[in-house]
Computed example of a mutant assay.
Amino acid sequence: MTLFDHAGIDLSAGPDWRAEERLMAELGGPVCGVDEVGRGPLAGPVVAAAVILDPARVPVGLNDSKKLTEKARVRLAAEIREVALAVSIAEASVEEIDTINILEAAMLAMRRAVAGLAVRPLGALVDGNRDPLIGITTETLVQGDARSLSIAAASIVAKVFRDELMKNLAEKHPEYGWDRNAGYGVPVHLEALKLVGVTPFHRKSFAPIRDILHQQNTLTD
């Protein structure tokens, strides 16, 4: 069955090189793919990655990270780091998320990721419909991780990095199941919040956390 997005783009074939090829021809230089992960979780930073693929060494099997198994993501992330022309990963912290909101924090992480690339790109392909204003020619692609190989690579690298980060945090706070749920508000996480409370790694501006803190403050007033 052929799948189309709202703009009529065929998503069934997986990401390809067309957007990169067009933008590189227009700009005369390298183009990076940019994506972020972790907007929805109740805990942990939001993470972005920027990747400049080598057109001659594009890993086989790149796709939207959500469509891949964990094993495939880990394997591909390692291969991307090995063969890409440049890879950069950046975060926006829980404190920054609570201060400027999650959308702006995601944009900040993207800007940091692009700024951290060892090779300076002339353009960027960014997942979504909002330009993070990274100071170079940018093209946004809705469902870009299913359309652009560079964005797919960035989505894989960012997700593998963040999943590993949350597994490390889970060693300090095992009650919340972050090694399995990556900080999302699944039942075991929500139940642990009621029983154990809020950690410094929770996003206090997010409704479930904010409500718990409000209740605690009400009880102590």
Rank of each mutant, 00 (worst) to 15 (best):
A105P: 05
G116Y: 08
P174M: 00
A170W: 07
K172Q: 05
E164F: 04
H173R: 10
G123L: 06
A90M: 04
A170R: 00
L169D: 00
P132E: 03
A105Y: 06
V126W: 02
V126E: 06
T140G: 00
R120L: 11
D145K: 09
G144Y: 02
R147M: 06
L165D: 05
E104N: 14
M110L: 06
G144M: 06
E91Y: 12
E171K: 15
D131K: 09
S150W: 08
L133F: 09
V142Y: 08
I97Q: 03
G123V: 09
K167L: 04
I102Q: 10
A158N: 00
Q143D: 13
A90W: 06
T99M: 15
A146H: 05
G123T: 09
S155I: 04
T140W: 00
L103W: 10
A170Y: 06
G123D: 11
V114F: 03
V142P: 00
L117Q: 08
N101A: 04
A92D: 00
K172N: 14
S155E: 02
A90Q: 04
L149K: 14
S93C: 13
A109C: 11
E171R: 13
V119S: 11
S148H: 06
E171S: 07
E139H: 07
T138N: 02
S148N: 07
A92T: 00
H173C: 11
A92R: 01
E95S: 13
I102H: 12
L165C: 08
D131V: 08
S150A: 15
L125V: 10
H173G: 08
A154Q: 05
N168K: 15
N168Q: 15
R120F: 07
L117Y: 05
A90K: 02
E96M: 13
V126G: 01
F161W: 09
R120P: 03
L117R: 05
I102T: 07
G123Q: 11
V142S: 11
F161N: 08
I136D: 01
V119P: 07
I156L: 08
I89W: 11
A105I: 07
K167M: 06
E171H: 12
A158P: 03
S88V: 03
E95R: 14
L125H: 04
R112K: 15
A158F: 04
V119I: 15
D127V: 11
A153K: 06
G135W: 04
V119G: 09
I102S: 13
V160L: 08
M166K: 12
M107C: 09
L125F: 13
I100M: 08
S155K: 02
L133A: 12
K172F: 05
A113Y: 11
M107K: 13
S88F: 02
V126L: 10
S155P: 00
Q143K: 15
A118K: 15
A115Y: 03
N168D: 13
H173I: 10
T99E: 14
H173W: 14
M110K: 06
P174V: 01
I136K: 01
V142N: 04
L165N: 02
L165F: 12
K167D: 10
Q143Y: 12
N101E: 10
A92E: 01
K167Y: 00
E104Y: 11
M166C: 09
A124H: 12
I136R: 00
L133R: 14
